[in-house]
Each structure stands twice: as C-alpha cells, then as structure tokens.
Simulated scan of single mutants.
Amino acid sequence: MTDVIRVLIVEDEPLTAEAHAAYVSRLDGFTVVGSAGTGRAMLAAVASEQPDLVLLDFDLPDAHGLQLVRALRAAGSAVDVIAVTAAHDARGVKNALALGIVQYLVKPFSFRTFAERLQTYRAFRRGFEDRRSLTQADIDQSLGTLRPSIPSELEKGIARETLDSVQDVLQRASGGLSATEVAEATGTSRVTARRYLEHCVTAGQADKEVRRSGPGRPEYEYRWLR
C-alpha cells in the first residue's frame, strides 16, 4: 500500500465537490486524484485513476450509490468506499454496510467530523500493511479503528455545532486569533466566541497568550495546538 491515500470524489454538486476536495487537501496523507459527477464518470475514473478510496454521494443523476458499489464489486474492484450522503434511511445504511462500505458520513457535517472519519480509515488501512496474516487481536483492533469513540458529554452551555465551527476556524488559521476575530468568522458574539475558545483551552485543544497591541486592556489570542 502506498503511503499517500489517493481519493476520488464522487459528487454531482460542484460546490460540494470543491468543499470536499478542500477538506481532503487539509489532511496529511491524502490526495485528490479526480472528481466525478455521475455514476458513469465514477466507474470510468476508478478504472483510469485507480484510487485507494472513493468518497461517494448516493444521489447521482444517473445511478444510486449502492448500485455503483455493486457494479464495482462485480467488476472485481476492491477500492474502499466511504458514503458521503444525505441519505440515512435504516435500510439504505444496512445495505451499505453489507456491501463493505467502510465509513458512513451523513450530510451536513463539519470538517472535524470529516477529518475524524478519514483518519480512522487511514489507521484501519495501516493495520493491513506489510502483513500476510492477522491474529484475532489484530483483526479486532483493525475493526475497532473504524468505530470512533463517542465523545463525552459537553459541558452545560456548549453546543456541538458551535464548538465544531470555532474549532474549524482555529484549525484553519495560520496564526493566533482573538475572540473578536473568531466571532466574526463564526457569526457569533464576542462573548460566545470567547466562552468556546476558553473551552478549547481547558480541553487542551488550544492555548492562549496575550496579544501585544499597545496600551489599554490586554487582548488574548488563541491558537490551535497542532
């Protein structure tokens, strides 16, 4: 297996496809090798680009995602597939798992959720590298990596969606950000942004230091711990 995971994005909405490509570009160890907006284009791209992983939307103009996975398997392709879709009916999810889809992402989702799923997938792949056989413990560990732990309950007054937004802004920043700057980027008040930033500091996800900005009340800037 190669060190860099080659990703094919299958999505019929151009802006969404671009967003997913941008997400992939922010992750170490992944690279986008192509994009397809139809099922027909996807099958052709899998044959020509030989990706390691397909990020597959189910609702395509000419085919359903599950039909495409069946077609891949019938053709002998063992490419890994992560469902990236708004479809979440119980029967569809069950059928997806039966076809060997390794992860299932329900739209909409934050970058944090996207990154967690791809990172657990990468850990899953690594469990098979340079091995001719696996012990029961190896198999259990590999399967376990695909099931991220359930996050502990958030403290009172902290909403998951807002927290994801603040964390995303910090992760994308090239330097430290003030509460005011985070508030502007997330569309929240400065007080709210500061509360969530302090939560990140307490959780060990970010640190803060005084920003030197002349006389007057000091202002803190927050930086994601990479």
Rank of each mutant, 00 (worst) to 15 (best):
P14Q: 03
R122V: 03
S142Q: 07
R112C: 12
A179W: 04
S110I: 14
D140Y: 11
Y23D: 14
I150L: 15
D130L: 05
S189K: 01
F114T: 06
A115H: 05
P218T: 06
N95I: 00
L99G: 12
E181T: 05
G214I: 10
F30I: 14
A19I: 13
R190F: 07
P218V: 10
D28A: 12
T145L: 14
V24K: 00
A173K: 04
G127M: 09
K94Q: 13
G187L: 09
R73S: 04
F30D: 08
R160F: 13
Y220K: 03
A71S: 13
A83S: 10
L134P: 15
R112G: 15
S165A: 15
L56R: 00
E209W: 01
P61R: 00
L118H: 10
R70W: 00
H199E: 11
V106P: 11
V106L: 08
D57T: 08
F109Q: 07
E11I: 04
Q171K: 10
H20Q: 09
S149E: 12
I101Q: 00
L68I: 15
Q103A: 07
V54K: 08
L143N: 05
E13N: 06
T113D: 03
L118K: 09
L146E: 07
E219I: 14
R26T: 05
L225G: 03
F128L: 04
G127S: 15
R40G: 11
R117Y: 02
A193W: 13
R195F: 08
G65Y: 05
A193C: 11
L72Q: 04
A86Q: 12
D12Y: 01
A87Y: 09
G92I: 15
V79N: 00
G204I: 11
L197E: 05
D28R: 07
A44D: 13
D57L: 07
R131H: 07
E11D: 02
V79T: 05
D80M: 06
F58Y: 10
E209S: 12
D59Q: 06
V33S: 04
L72W: 11
G144F: 04
R190W: 06
V81M: 10
P215I: 10
L225W: 01
A123S: 03
L118Q: 07
A17T: 14
E155M: 09
T202A: 14
E11P: 06
